[in-house]
Design a protein around this nucleic acid. Structure first.
Length: 288
DNA sequence: CTACCATCCTGGTTGC
DNA sequence: TGCAACCAGGATGGTA
């Protein structure tokens, strides 16, 4: 479900609840997530203090005081919800009842709960020692972080070189750029003025520069808006993100794209096509 | 190596 | 209203 901006928003929401706090209780109500949780999952986490929460691509990386790192991926439908003891339910002492698909519950010594909720169970959690993290199969082949300082047109062009697939499919590949998904790929290509059907390898030089800058701008704006709330995705606090109101093309079939001077009546406005099994939205006038 | 496809799973929406 | 078909923000393992 969540892409980089949503994961980053969740990370920021979890920091005040978890960092510096000790886990008093960890309950795995279901262990059969995309990757099964180990038998000793709860045991390895109970009593640990959270040192920091980082992010790589769409993975949250929770570092613990025993140098274990808890890796969390939310897949398509995963959510992390914070429930604090002094919420609206304080009158009835204790947290509101667990919902269906609340698979893992972390409780801190301060009494706050973080609930991992994932109906489709495409999400996963895994533990890995800090020193072996970079070689972990989930992380080893990821491409560059688009918001890291070194990410520019040259870095992106290098990754796209020789790729015969479409630029849309290439950007969805986490080995090319880490953290993008269907929405932000569509939005970035629109912002860069590039057709999603263009061969990836042709995005070099000025085009690569424009695309790299577009990706960074879209991601930064989305993070500033608290991510996007489609369906019922929310921030850990329960607040909605609101970047979905800023989508230029995603989900806007038939509409005129922002600032477009073309005759939407004649062109049909924003188009939707299917590429490698996923919906792509784009403006045929402004994206070449 | 690259590229495409099916697949994991459930819930919400759409259309008959 | 009931029900089936289809769609969904992701990633991977197998095949060509």
């Amino acid at each position: 479900m969540p892409e980089l901006p949503e994961v980053e928003t969740i990370r920021l929401g979890l920091i005040p609840v978890l960092v510096g706090h000790r886990l008093a209780r960890v309950r795995a109500r279901r262990r059969d997530l995309r990757v099964a949780l180990p038998d000793d999952f709860g045991q390895r986490l109970t009593g640990r203090r959270v040192e920091s929460i980082g992010r790589r691509a769409k993975f949250l990386l929770v570092t613990l005081d025993n140098d274990d790192v808890l890796m969390v991926h939310l897949g398509m439908s995963g959510r992390l919800r914070v429930v604090t003891p002094s919420g609206v339910h304080s009158h009835d002492r204790g947290a509101p009842p667990l919902a269906a698909h609340d698979h893992v519950v972390f409780t801190t010594e301060a009494g706050a709960e973080v609930r991992f909720h994932d109906p489709r169970r495409f999400g996963l959690m895994a533990l890995c020692h800090r020193e072996r993290l970079a070689e972990h199969p989930f992380l080893a082949n990821l491409g560059p972080e688009p918001l890291a300082p070194g990410f520019d047109g040259d870095a992106l062009g290098l990754r796209l070189k020789g790729r015969k697939t479409s630029i849309k499919a290439a950007l969805m590949d986490q080995r090319v750029v880490a953290g993008l998904g269907n929405i932000y790929v569509c939005e970035s290509l629109f912002r860069a003025g590039l057709s999603p059907k263009r061969t990836a390898a042709t995005v070099q030089g000025e085009r690569a520069h424009r695309l790299a800058q577009a990706i960074r701008a879209v991601l930064k704006e989305a993070i500033a808006a608290g991510g996007s709330s489609l369906r019922d995705h929310r921030q850990p606090s329960g607040e909605l993100g609101y970047f979905q109101h800023h989508f230029a093309v995603y989900g806007r079939l038939g509409e005129r794209c922002p600032g477009c001077t073309c005759d939407a009546q004649r062109t049909g406005g924003i188009r939707a096509i299917v590429q490698t099994g996923r919906s792509t939205f784009y403006c045929p006038t402004r994206q070449r």
